[in-house]
Design a protein around this nucleic acid. Sequence first.
RNA 1: GUGGAUGUAGCUCAGCUGGUUAGAGUACCAGAUUGUGGCUCUGGGGGUCGUGGGUUCAAAUCCCAUCAUCCACCCCA
Length: 418
Amino acid sequence: MLTTRPRGTADILPGQIENWQYIEGMAAQVCREYGYREIRTPIFEHTELFVRGVGDTTDIVEKEMYTFQDRGERSITLRPEGTASVVRAYLENKLYAGPQPVKVYYIGPMFRYDRPQAGRYRQFHQFGVEVFGAQQPTVDAEVMALAMDFYARLGLTNLELHINSLGCPTCRTTVRDKLQQYFQPMLGELCPNCQSRYDRNPLRILDCKSSRCTELALDAPTTADCLCSDCQAHFEQVQLYMQDLGIPYVLDKQLVRGLDYYTHTAFEIMAPGIGAQSSVGGGGRYNGLIEACGGPSTPGIGFALGLERILLALEKSGKLPQIQARPLVYLIAAGDRAVRSSFSLLARLRAAGIAADMDYQGRSLKAQMKYAGKLGVRYAVITGEDELQRGSVMLRDMNAGEQREIPVGEVINTLGNR
RNA sequence: GUGGAUGUAGCUCAGCUGGUUAGAGUACCAGAUUGUGGCUCUGGGGGUCGUGGGUUCAAAUCCCAUCAUCCACCCCA
């Protein structure tokens, strides 16, 4: 166990980290262009925040949270998602008192105690955005557009955006009643899971993957059928803006989403070919959440995208760029005197902003050359007794396999111009 | 939480129905080439056979448990 990482976690090693930096950099860039600023909240919070914020009937709260007592006997939970923390920060720091809307994004680890499988981990990473204080349908469209733009810039164009409207609390009460009426005669035929959903949250029956339930739910009333006129109008406008932006989507009346706080627009993005866990992102509007957390009545909307799954999709479609962090120059020294001279040249190169490295193992010239080849550096700067006496170095172009002797004093200038 | 598959060198794997000192390829290090990488050849280091227990004269091999990984259910990113 000493040398085994906890189940469902991963080490991200040099060679892989470049991919993460690439994705995170893209997220930061897109967000900057859309006017979203970064926010960083703690990785753990008081347990009650998630119970209240995520919903106490959700699977996340019921069985997937990493909860523990700290030394002050507070109940603490490693965040299972990002929205609750951001809402808390919005309220605690009274951001509602400043100019609205507040548009923020976050990137970081989330924790859920779940059985790991392809694309599912106990510690995973999300890139998410939240907008507080704006209820116009343009914001719904912008948030979805941002997500799709982000994917597209990474080269993921074969994704499916599913959207639906869950309506306001009034609409949800209507659907709930209608669904219970609809399913009542066939209650016995539903899977055991859905039988309990019937009372607690009949909406989720629509989302069930069991083939019999899907069949039975085929003619069931959906949220979209029960929208009040305001909600209907909002949803139609959202779709209109999406069409104006030229972003294709699938109207998916079965789409429900697992977190209790969603209202109105709900959406999910699916990637083909990355396994059973095909959802690479999802989100929606949560107009009641901020109030439920003790704040002023404030509309909110956001999404969360799973970075591990995006990485999987990029690998599958061969869209990962070949990025390799490597120094430009490797200094090679034959003999003690040459080491001394190279080592100080190394410092000067670095001071000039040129990425450089050299041998620290006392290896032979040949072995140093070999290592330089493996590092994949563009240039080798070789110093031996002969060069030392002439005050020069041998500058070797590793790709071309050619070299020429230049004065030590010209190394920085010569390499600086590459 | 449920089900299935798999754990042998850093990596990919061989090791037949239990039988001496557990192998290959690759990677790593060194030499061939006493001042020059990539190709080739030679040599070297490196393995508690996931872990614990059991059966047996004898276990990498058979049995049980456990841990981990992968895949699926569930759920979600």
